[in-house]
Design a protein around this nucleic acid. Structure first.
Lengths: 143, 143
DNA sequence: CCGGATCCGTTTCGATACTG
DNA sequence: CAGTATCGAAACGGATCCGG
């Protein structure tokens, strides 16, 4: 299995730790799908259209769980697993939003106009709703 | 020379393009050093303490210039080069700020408390100053 | 000395195939 | 469904070399 990427751990720079996560094309995509698209399962991510390979997905999910950004639970189904964002994970919402807005402004994306508009015109409200949605979903599943 | 990382180019996801950049541990560090630390030269980045290798630095600088986030100019010195953020590059400031705040909140960093405080307590003003500083520096050098 | 370019051994990535 | 096993292709980092 691929080893932890330690090369991003730098001495005393304010965003060093974040780059353990962000210095990788896949992790943020997983977080985004979890946060904005309601995806929760291994297969959701695997077929999300980005074309991640299963072994890479396994590794990144484990890494994110390891970093305390995701929790892994058994679904009611008992055969399946469900991944959920932790508080630390949902706290990435502002970063994601800024990133999405930047991408939308500077590159061609076919992001849903509706969502972009909501993000741009009332960022605080948008973020509040993301958090509320997260809390609600979370409280519906007994830990 | 290392080839462009195309694996991050995904179909129609709102942050796909950004990940060409961000899906790499080094690019954001360079942008940050440029934006917040006043570093401008090859050697600045090379000795920034993060331990990037010269060949990797060369590649990342070229990539960032290529992506339209950096401009490369000859310094008054004529032996040296100076790298500057473009408008597209400076537009990443909100992303960086959110990232830094997230890292500060969720991991141990020794980021300067003063700066973090300024970012957190008055984000808009902080960003405004970053942009003003950028414009000022830029106008001092005839293109 | 500055800003790279090139070569090379090692690590990590990722596509495919396979499994409980 | 949720992962392993395999294995070739990259990216990485260190060292060294080069042109101005």
């Amino acid at each position: 299995m691929p080893r932890r990427v330690d090369s991003a751990r730098r001495s005393g720079c304010p965003i060093s730790i974040a780059l353990e996560l962000l210095g990788d094309p896949w992790s943020l995509l997983i977080v985004r799908d979890l946060m904005f698209k309601g995806m929760t399962s291994f297969l959701d991510f695997l077929n999300a259209g980005e074309g991640i390979a299963s072994n890479i997905l396994t590794d990144r999910l484990a890494r994110l769980v390891d970093a305390g950004m995701l929790e892994k639970h058994r679904a009611k189904d008992r055969r399946r697993f469900v991944y959920r964002l932790t508080a630390k994970g949902i706290a990435l919402a502002p970063v994601l939003v800024e990133l999405i807005l930047w991408s939308d402004a500077h590159e061609e994306t076919d992001a849903p106009r509706q969502t972009i508009k909501a993000m741009r015109e009332n960022r605080a409200e948008f973020l509040r709703r993301v958090r509320i949605k997260w809390k609600t979903e979370r409280s519906h599943r007994p830990g």
